[in-house]
């Protein structure tokens, strides 16, 4: 019987009790890394530097991958064709972040989104489970647009940084912003 009143093992340390323990050992990891972008992502990043969003196409099943990969994960075949996308897409979901990576409060909240990109061969119908997409920030969007849901499904396009500021990074796109009809 493991009901409410069973006494379980485990010795709880309250608040800063831990920091007063004798025998506490601290260690600072000094791990630094260098990540290589690899082939498919490398070309994708080069494309961003040139103001283009690139995908790859599988020769067997026709799936378009953004971000691109060297292989089709369904066919295990090498992808053989680059596809340039218009860059426009629809907001799949969006949120309002009030905190930084380390939970510090932000002065101005950020809008974060997943964008379903328009690509040949994809219908954009709501029942399509997979799609070429990108994870980025939105600008010209208010928190209330997220809360009310107005922004979901809205058409957006990338706002590129000036060419001289681009480094071959996802941040070469400053953000995505709504396309104003007219």
């Amino acid at each position: 019987m493991v009901g409410k009143d069973v006494k379980l093992p485990g010795t709880y340390l309250k608040g800063d009790e831990m920091y007063k323990l004798p025998g506490l050992v601290e260690h600072r990891p000094e791990a630094k890394y260098e990540f290589a972008s690899g082939q498919a992502q490398g070309r994708f990043l080069q494309g961003l530097k040139e103001g283009k969003i690139l995908g790859v196409k599988c020769p067997r099943c026709g799936r378009v991958y953004v971000p691109p990969r060297m292989y089709c994960e369904y066919c295990m075949a090498p992808t053989t064709e680059w596809v340039e996308l218009s860059g426009e897409g629809e907001v799949h979901t969006a949120v309002v972040s009030y905190i930084s990576t380390f939970r510090a409060r932000l002065e101005k909240p950020e809008i974060i989104a997943v964008i379903r990109l328009y690509a040949p061969g994809y219908t954009g119908k709501p029942d399509e489970y997979e799609f070429p997409g990108i994870f980025h920030k939105l600008c010209n969007v208010e928190p209330d647009d997220v809360v009310s849901g107005r922004i979901i499904g809205a058409r957006v396009r990338p706002r590129w940084r000036p060419p001289e500021e681009r480094r071959g990074s996802v941040t070469d796109i400053e953000c995505f912003e709504p396309v104003v009809e007219g």
């Binding site: 990891p29 630094k32 260098e34 990540f35 490398g42 070309r43 990043l45």
Partner: peptide, 11 residues
């Protein structure tokens, strides 16, 4: 052209 390297640090 496509060899891009990214630094990282254990946060």
């Amino acid at each position: 052209r496509v060899s891009v390297r990214y630094p990282g640090r254990m946060e």
